[in-house]
Write a protein that binds this DNA or RNA. Sequence first.
DNA 1: GTCTATAGCCCGATAGAC
DNA 2: GTCTATCGGGCTATAGAC
Lengths: 231, 231
Amino acid sequence: MVSTPTPDKRDTVKAHGTIRARNVQNIIGAAEIEFAQRGYKATSIQKIAARAGLPKANIHYYFNSKLELYLEILTNILRLWDAALNELKPEDDPATALSRYIHAKIEFSRRYPLASRIFALEVMTGGEHLRDYYQQGYHTWFQERCAVLQSWVKQGKMAPVDPAHLIFLLWSSTQHYADFGYQATAALHGDKQPLSDSDYQQAATTLSTIILRGCGITPPDSASPGHAMKP
Amino acid sequence: MVSTPTPDKRDTVKAHGTIRARNVQNIIGAAEIEFAQRGYKATSIQKIAARAGLPKANIHYYFNSKLELYLEILTNILRLWDAALNELKPEDDPATALSRYIHAKIEFSRRYPLASRIFALEVMTGGEHLRDYYQQGYHTWFQERCAVLQSWVKQGKMAPVDPAHLIFLLWSSTQHYADFGYQATAALHGDKQPLSDSDYQQAATTLSTIILRGCGITPPDSASPGHAMKP
DNA sequence: GTCTATAGCCCGATAGAC
DNA sequence: GTCTATCGGGCTATAGAC
């Protein structure tokens, strides 16, 4: 899920970097599982090494420290994280744009629950390693995203709702299926069988239905095209 | 926030238990802060003792192990956690019942963010200490709660939506302000000033508006009493 | 590039003086 | 009831043989 870190000794060895790349990927994959299961501090390099099938000193060979490995993973998550929201534009039709956004986020929860959980654990434990990220223009970026939703309200495309809290609603309701997947499974199925594809589909359509109607938007594929909306 | 654990030596000392009770409360309060900040495994007894202003051996005097102290706190949270949802009854008017539920959960996030975060961290890291709780009738309890919402649908009190996913939506959207409070603060205010009372009010009214309208329910205090609803 | 051995630290838990 | 001292163990990180 990431490019190779600082290359070294390009000349002495054959060095197409294939061994390095393979090991780095292996370590990152194992680390994602472990960090998602316990959070940064409670995860030991020993466990990561065991999952990767390597002696733990090898982790230190590719990543100078536990923190460096963690930041490598966390930074990659952040890069992906806000991409979806950036695609919302003032000229969009909110019916299709919001519905697509909800389905995309649910799909993200289904496919990359580890990334979602690593991010959530980081935020919930104080976001110590996100301080720079949040202080470098995050507030203004968020305001710009709110402005897009606000422009839909002004154009009469949706009912007047607080854009910031609507965004929080979109985030929380969709990420719930990754972050609280264990609870959702226990509630829905009781047993250990994980959430099925149809569970995720049902989640996406239910959320779309409620949130779009809640914003006074007629769903794109809905049956009743003439549902009224208050100014 | 809890009763005293196993009492001992009731006879030899004066023993109104006032010293014990005070120390236990002090330790639990400090432990809640620490567990909420880092999760169970990453929290050390040393940190708890430091925050409580005691030598760490004293924690072991009142609680035999770190796990016992943690379970004491976690169990108390669980006791409170589902009380609000249990108050929803088939004969209720969903407009007032759901609105009240949303406001109550937001208020809970505002007043007890530590409890919410401890619970969330526990679930997200696999719920190792919740296994008994989830396996002892949790599934059937959840189904009963869904049945209440389903009865509202059948009575024509609200639009047909999947009750389970509606409950997930209610949980996730309200707990978001406790669990992701740090992110919400960064997004709304940029600076370090925490979420204000008016932020929580705005959250509650926005969520109520969207979710109730999304379920085809006319808000209790709303202006238009005749808003139509699909069967 | 790989792996063993170990230094140096912090942890949970306990013993025992006061 | 309180607190110091300490044991045994797991941790991050590094040194150095192969």
